[in-house]
Computed example of a mutant assay.
Amino acid sequence: MRIMVIGASKGLGRALVEGLAEQHELIGVSRSRPADLAQPVQWIEADLSDPLGAVEAIERQAPARLDAILYNLGIWEERAFAEGYSFLEDSDARILEMVDVNIGATLLLLKRLLPCLLGGAKPQLILTGSTSGLPQSGRPEVTFGASKFALKGIADSLREGFRDQRLAVTCLQLGYLNTQDGLHTPREQAALNGEGQLIPLHDVVALVRTLLTLSDASYVRELVLPAIADQRF
């Protein structure tokens, strides 16, 4: 399969590239290509904090046909997920930047890339959401939570708009991830390092592999993956 991973340079995106590269043809998208990436992956350098410029650059360099898009892009408040976070202390500039990147850039880029997917035998779009975007999530980060609520709305609307073209849209609602341990760390060790509060990247990669192997007769609409000791779920 030919798969584009958006937001691919570090964390979960990097793990998806490393975990899928042996079996699939990948195109990574991020501000810069990681210097230490061992896999032979095509790369498109684009900074989605400039949505219009980035989507034009990505559209120019994207292949004519894609089988799947893994959309793993999102930024959050400067003091998000820390004690003492206060919406009232968020700068206006940061709030607008988050809306531009998390919502605006997503809409513009998917508008450009969907024609590359549609018409294929099994077009798939996998969006990385967050448990912060679920009802009664227990999190106070207003703008980040709102942008992840929006992502779920984007997924729902795309399914309906392109149902006749059999577009499979999955929203992964992920809890807190252990982004310190990459796939080079054994999964069991990565799970221990989180002490039940963090999800190993290995688990998300395993789920994505499964989603990509489903037949064209079914799809997963939404998947909620919290850490085992996350008391919010």
Results as ranks from 00 to 15, higher is better:
2 R>V: 04
4 M>G: 11
10 K>R: 15
10 K>M: 11
10 K>S: 15
10 K>A: 15
12 L>A: 12
12 L>Y: 09
12 L>E: 09
13 G>K: 00
14 R>A: 12
14 R>Q: 12
14 R>S: 11
18 E>A: 10
19 G>V: 07
19 G>Y: 04
22 E>F: 07
22 E>P: 05
27 I>G: 06
35 A>T: 15
35 A>N: 14
40 P>T: 01
41 V>T: 11
41 V>F: 03
42 Q>D: 15
42 Q>N: 12
45 E>A: 09
47 D>F: 11
49 S>M: 07
50 D>L: 09
50 D>E: 11
54 A>N: 03
59 E>M: 00
59 E>V: 00
60 R>E: 10
61 Q>K: 03
65 R>W: 07
66 L>T: 01
74 G>A: 10
75 I>L: 14
75 I>F: 12
76 W>E: 08
78 E>Q: 13
80 A>L: 04
84 G>V: 05
86 S>P: 08
100 D>G: 03
102 N>S: 05
102 N>E: 02
107 L>P: 00
111 K>L: 00
113 L>G: 01
117 L>H: 10
117 L>V: 04
118 L>M: 10
122 K>W: 09
122 K>T: 12
124 Q>L: 00
125 L>N: 13
128 T>N: 03
131 T>M: 14
132 S>P: 05
132 S>G: 14
134 L>V: 11
136 Q>W: 06
137 S>V: 14
139 R>L: 13
140 P>K: 08
141 E>Q: 15
145 G>F: 13
159 R>M: 05
159 R>G: 07
165 Q>M: 07
170 T>N: 03
170 T>G: 05
172 L>R: 04
173 Q>V: 06
175 G>S: 10
178 N>I: 07
189 Q>K: 15
193 N>C: 01
194 G>D: 01
210 T>K: 11
210 T>S: 14
210 T>Q: 13
211 L>K: 10
212 L>Y: 11
214 L>S: 06
221 R>Y: 14
224 V>A: 08
224 V>E: 09
232 R>A: 12
233 F>C: 01
